[in-house]
């Protein structure tokens, strides 16, 4: 493993670096939790790593709240999310995804930018952000643009980023004004409980008003398709329904709609059969859990 390392201290410096590297092979690095392992396994010749973790930019490295959104810099670490009580309160799905990521040591350095831009079909934080219908803010030598995160992924390890661009921040829309209750969680299935790469994951964020009506919902599925997918039809199926009216049959119908978005592979972690079966069962369980709550209310 051999590479040149550049450590820009500001975005101004970064863009100068990128101009210089225009005709060279370079890759970004921040927490380096994935890239060092990848380069050790498949060394690349004449590679430059541009280290983003020393860039001094509070927006890039911080979490901020505006009236209608929460903004996360791409340099925010998983641990930053875990320590943020606002996120725990507003977006449990995101907090849980960060909390269950890998191990304490890795969470200290792994960034959400890295999790997203690796574009792994099993990225945990990414899956949560897709369920929250987040937007990616991209900056580059030619300016700034925004793209919905669900459109950011073009295939396994392929993103919409062009050369000279990088992910700057992520905007999560605020919860609806009338929301009084959230069903929001991240379900991750693997063989063990920590240090695990998801075999199936589901992120969901359901907002409910004071009359038990589902105002809006977001579901995303991971590790069951070439990219993380937002299951729009399944969301449409439950949006505007009253949770007290949900039935076991709805749970099955809902799970079938989620399953339409899956197209899993068989690999050493699990077979296609297992991933499909578990995705269906877990999707069903989300509605079943809501039904259980409705009984508890009664």
């Amino acid at each position: 493993m051999n590479f040149e390392l550049i450590n820009p201290q500001s975005f101004k410096e970064l863009f100068l670096v990128l101009k210089k590297l225009k005709h060279r092979k370079y890759r970004y690095a921040a927490g380096c939790t994935d890239i060092l392992i990848e380069l050790k396994r498949n060394p690349e010749d004449d590679l430059t790593l541009v280290n983003l973790s020393q860039i001094n930019d509070f927006k890039f490295r911080g979490i901020s709240q505006t009236k209608n959104s929460v903004r996360l810099g791409a340099g925010v670490t998983a641990n930053d999310i875990v320590r943020n009580l606002n996120i725990k309160l507003l977006y449990p799905v995101l907090w849980e995804a960060a909390y269950n990521l890998a191990s304490t040591q890795i969470r200290q350095v792994a960034t959400i930018g890295g999790n997203i831009c690796t574009a792994s079909p099993s990225g945990d934080i990414t899956c949560a952000l897709v369920s929250l219908d987040a937007t990616c803010v991209i900056i580059g030598v030619h300016g700034k643009r925004e793209i919905r995160i669900r459109d950011f992924f073009e295939g396994p390890r392929q993103t919409a980023l062009k050369k000279g661009e990088l992910l700057y921040e992520i905007i999560i829309p605020g919860n609806k004004k009338n929301t009084v209750k959230l069903f929001s969680s991240f379900i991750k299935i693997g063989t063990r409980r920590s240090m695990e790469c998801s075999v199936v994951s589901i992120a969901y964020h359901i907002q409910i008003d004071g009359f038990n009506k589902i105002l809006t919902s977001g579901f995303a599925i991971g590790a069951v398709a070439p990219t993380i997918r937002f299951t729009a039809k399944a969301c449409d199926f439950i949006n505007r329904k009253n949770i007290n009216a949900l039935t076991e049959r709805d749970a099955e119908s809902f799970a079938l709609k989620v399953s339409e978005y899956s197209d899993p592979i068989s690999d050493i972690r699990a077979t296609r059969w297992y991933r499909e079966k578990v995705l269906f069962n877990l999707s069903k369980s989300i509605i079943e859990d809501i039904i259980k709550c409705q009984i508890e209310v009664k």
């Binding site: 191990s103 063989t191 063990r192 409980r193 920590s194 240090m195 695990e196 790469c197 050493i268 972690r269």
Partner: peptide
């Protein structure tokens, strides 16, 4: 590798 050869972790 320890990524895919899974020994139990502290949380198991």
């Amino acid at each position: 590798n320890f990524h895919n050869y899974k020994i139990p972790t502290a949380s198991d």
